[in-house]
């Protein structure tokens, strides 16, 4: 078989993308504190150590709580914005929608510093999980809008009108018809927001209170070389979890498209 230049390029590119991630599970199961080849032996000891680390458990609980709250709030806000963008008519619509999508491209470090100054210096608030949640909602909402925008754009406006026509009120028409039809988008948005929040580091590092989130805790561990394999083990679990969540999200996005009778164009998986 002849391998073309483009083929070689594609293979190199894939190696570049995934080699670091492949290293995670390799060293997570390696029986040595030093991260280096050759491998010395197989162990599940690092995972066992994870199970006994209570400080880490606290960080994971924090992160899960923050991710869950951020996902729910961001998706709620995103649903409202996407619906307004798709069906509403109001002045400066394009400008407003563009403006709330902006955090998508703003550097997180800028958002983090700005929020720290505002929350602590100006508003005099104490840093806590809720300050992190607020900031994560800020960065997750644009993603939520982007996902749900598709769901609402693809929705035939006659659907809701038909429900109204058949005797439902605006609210019950939304609940009985619109909501089930955009539900795949909502689930997809929840999962992606959850994933973004879960592994977000910069903002959490600035805004976290006395209880660190998981990424912040991991960063703290890096100062101790002996704990590196534990981080590898944790990383392995996180990567697996992320892939599972994103796959579920993509499944729901596609199912939504199939229901609406749209041919799939793109998507991220």
């Amino acid at each position: 078989m002849r391998i073309s230049v483009l083929g070689i390029y594609a293979i190199l590119y894939l190696i570049f993308l995934y080699a670091p991630i492949v290293l995670l599970p390799i060293f997570a199961f390696n029986d040595a504190t030093i991260i280096a080849f050759p491998l010395t032996g197989f162990t599940t000891g690092w995972f066992a150590e994870l199970a006994t680390n209570t400080a880490l458990h606290g960080a994971v609980r924090n992160s899960l709580f923050i991710a869950l709250m951020s996902a729910v709030i961001a998706t709620g806000l995103g649903t409202m914005a996407a619906r307004a963008g798709a069906t509403g008519e109001f002045p400066f619509k394009r400008g407003i929608i563009g403006f709330i999508m902006l955090p998508l491209v703003l550097p997180e470090i800028i958002i983090a510093v700005a929020l720290l100054v505002i929350l602590v210096q100006i508003l005099g608030m104490n840093l806590s999980n809720w300050t992190v949640i607020g900031a994560h909602v800020l960065i997750c909402t644009p993603f939520s809008i982007a996902i749900l925008n598709g769901a609402f754009q693809n929705l035939d406006p006659s659907m809701e009108e038909a429900a109204l026509d058949l005797g439902e009120t605006r609210l019950s028409a939304f609940r009985l018809v619109t909501l089930p039809l955009v539900m795949p988008g909502i689930i997809s948005s929840l999962l992606i927001s959850f994933t973004i929040s879960l592994d977000e580091f910069i903002i959490a590092f600035f805004l976290t209170g006395s209880n660190p989130t998981m990424p912040v805790y991991i960063w703290g561990l890096l100062r101790f070389p002996a704990s590196l394999p534990v981080i590898m083990a944790l990383g392995t679990i996180l990567v697996t979890l992320s892939i599972i969540l994103l796959t579920i999200a993509e499944y729901f996005r596609r199912r939504g498209n199939a229901r609406a009778g749209i041919k799939d164009t793109g998507g991220f998986l």
């Binding site: 035939d156 006659s158 659907m159 009108e161 038909a162 429900a163 109204l164 026509d165 058949l166 005797g167 439902e168 009120t169 018809v177 039809l181 229901r259 609406a260 009778g261």
Partner: peptide, 17 residues
């Protein structure tokens, strides 16, 4: 619309999928 004695067949039919 929900309180009028009219019902409509939409151009797209708007069948709830």
């Amino acid at each position: 619309a929900n309180l009028r004695p009219t019902n409509m067949v939409f151009q797209s039919y708007a069948i709830f999928p």
